[in-house]
Design a protein around this nucleic acid. Sequence first.
DNA 1: AGATTGCGTTAAACAGTGTTAAGCAGTGTT
DNA 2: AACACTGCTTAACACTGTTTAACGCAATCT
Lengths: 226, 226
Amino acid sequence: MGEKTKVLLAEDEASLGMIIKESLESRNFQVSLCGDGEEALETYRSYDPDILVLDVMMPLKDGFTLAREIRRKDPDTPIIFLTAKSRTEDVVEGFGHGGNDYLRKPFSMEELIVRVNALLNRQQVRKTNGIVEIGRYKFDYPKQLLILGNKILPLTHREAEVLLRLARQPNRLIERSQILNEIWGEDDFFNGRSMDVFITRLRKKLKQDPSIQIVNVRGFGYKLIC
Amino acid sequence: MGEKTKVLLAEDEASLGMIIKESLESRNFQVSLCGDGEEALETYRSYDPDILVLDVMMPLKDGFTLAREIRRKDPDTPIIFLTAKSRTEDVVEGFGHGGNDYLRKPFSMEELIVRVNALLNRQQVRKTNGIVEIGRYKFDYPKQLLILGNKILPLTHREAEVLLRLARQPNRLIERSQILNEIWGEDDFFNGRSMDVFITRLRKKLKQDPSIQIVNVRGFGYKLIC
DNA sequence: AGATTGCGTTAAACAGTGTTAAGCAGTGTT
DNA sequence: AACACTGCTTAACACTGTTTAACGCAATCT
């Protein structure tokens, strides 16, 4: 991404649209705001966005239909749906149409930004074949390796899983419970102790480059600083 | 495949059927949805699908029976079973009836799509006359050979079978039990030990290209990284 | 027939991984 | 300052996977 990250935002409620647009712009995103589905589809073609944020209920063309049409030719660009309904079926439908995430209204701007960043980072991991740079290290997630110069440190599966969660959003707070739920499926006492052990082991393996640190935020989670 | 890939979907629960149908269609598949086993069999004959997605529990004819009948004349077209039950026996039974994969309800559309694509890729192996590229190697499955430049390593039958299971879905986790059931017919202690031995032997023969690795995922299976 | 070879299985010792446990250290609160 | 709480570290452990070798069987050769 040479310049700013481009967001295509489709939201028919003008005031809400503007609020979202401005908060994204304040985070250094470039945003194109569309008021209905047709306009969004047209804009999509010329604007070449990095990520789409689509309201589900819009005039002329709803978000799901729009997503389906886009997905025909573009299986990659992440999509976040904004939905007022909270019923499960809508969520299923959203994922079914190729979306990557959804957000129920009302939501906080923080939440949206977190998800946008998460999806973009995930995308990046995929585009680099799962290889992420961490300071002077290269972290090869599929091969479970940490490479520093000519040194190769093998990681175990769990180590690689934990590190991936931290590395795909560096310098950001990742919540303990998010990591635990994603990897262990449950956030309970024992899994928590287990994770502690892996944090220790990762710190040991990352010690070669002192500019990298796994910083604890008491009561919340960790940040990978690099 | 001249046009779109054709999926025959048999699912008696109408709402779920429609969701699956639409999700697949949004990914550019052509889908024929059948509400029971008899209808599915009839449709199969005229529709000539590239892949079958069958609910196990259906009126008139269950998915296993249907699969068995289809397999009599058609050993190739991949079959995915959808099953509400989660017991291991059903999975084993599924493979026994000629199924290639199974999916436990509830599942996400993402999962289904990943598996459909994986099986279609597998078909690709057949279309290249059973020759698969693995890193710098060429793996000739029918001839049981690994070719690297001008070096030719012969493989034994079992080695070739195990390697095929890994190579037709590279970079993805293949479950131990799946390999064991497909090759040995049963996942028990001794077959497991036997497989370990072949994993070792394959690793030895694949050592020439260090970019290739058979990575273990503790408790689940292996990934062929390349 | 007897010897040889090749293959898959069994066996056994060994290494690696994730979890649990226990004690210690750090942090914020009362 | 005392306290509770969270996190850190090390070690022990049970379990899973790895490796090498030996074994037994069947097919092939002499």
